[in-house]
Design a protein around this nucleic acid. Sequence first.
DNA 1: TCATGCATGTAAGAGGTTACATGATTCG
DNA 2: CGAATCATGTAACCTCTTACATGCATGA
Lengths: 175, 175
Amino acid sequence: MTTEINATAASLLGFLHDGPLTGWDLVARAEQTIGPFWSLTKSQVYRELALMAEHGLVTPGETGRRDAKPYTITDAGRAAFADWAARGPGEATIRLPLLLFVTLGKHLEPGLLRTVLAEQRAHQAALLKDYLGIRQMLGELDEQDPHLLATLEYGITVARATVRWIDRLPPEIAS
Amino acid sequence: MTTEINATAASLLGFLHDGPLTGWDLVARAEQTIGPFWSLTKSQVYRELALMAEHGLVTPGETGRRDAKPYTITDAGRAAFADWAARGPGEATIRLPLLLFVTLGKHLEPGLLRTVLAEQRAHQAALLKDYLGIRQMLGELDEQDPHLLATLEYGITVARATVRWIDRLPPEIAS
DNA sequence: TCATGCATGTAAGAGGTTACATGATTCG
DNA sequence: CGAATCATGTAACCTCTTACATGCATGA
């Protein structure tokens, strides 16, 4: 019976399959690979790492430069990860205040929703542009993991869909 | 200076603008209107209602049938809501375990990701069908709030985008 | 040398989930 | 009469966020 880990810990173990990483690295790695679709704060990361070390799922290595402490996944860690994965991805957690604004639009001061939507459109368009730039860059390399590309593709798809959704909103709402 | 409320409380106050509702009603209302884009559990709702009552943002009414206790929004409640809205929608909170699965696909047992993706496709397709059904029904009514339709439209857009994303995944991942 | 980035962590509190407990009402 | 649904709530726990504190290394 392996230790039952939570999704946050599991994601860290997942990244550690590629080799030892420090807490700092893990935050950066998550940011770069799943970005907005899997939020992690450093507080969470350091706590989970400490906890997992206690349970023998990872082992801290020698402190390197600037106190960097790389963690290595253990066999128990790999087992715990596989165990988590076998339980399937859980429910998504989604809280979109923007959608709440739209839903409650009737009760907002006139103009506020329009402003907010315009801002969001700009934001999503900028994000989309970033993603497309990254895809281009990745395309020029060979030897990339198709899974990372697929995740990026999801970001592109959703950003694009969101922009189009805003553009097609009826004038009563968005004009 | 009004009481600074959190987004959860704000959403409840938003719904209460339409008239008194019980905790139970509020959960149902949220479910029906923003559904997956604004999660609320009843524990949260009852807690926030009690807290808001303490602060005078809502007032509990007479207990009706089956202990139903309707809450009415007060002027202070409306002010607090307006205040919250003026601060703008905050950052989105998104945690999609599915995306985590995709990102970490390299480290999952072969076949697991395929299975999970197939399940998700079915799930999203079913959701899309539901949404389309609801839109049809709403279309046959007159006098609906365009904001609710817009929210529904977002659900349709995203579900559709997700299904297409899965369908277009390269065979190394999804086949 | 000073700003920026790397790197760790703690403490406190807010927010969210799960399990439990209770009871009325309605419908078949 | 029994099952399902309506309806409220508590307690315990887990998770997440924010603010704070510290210090090394690098490059302009």
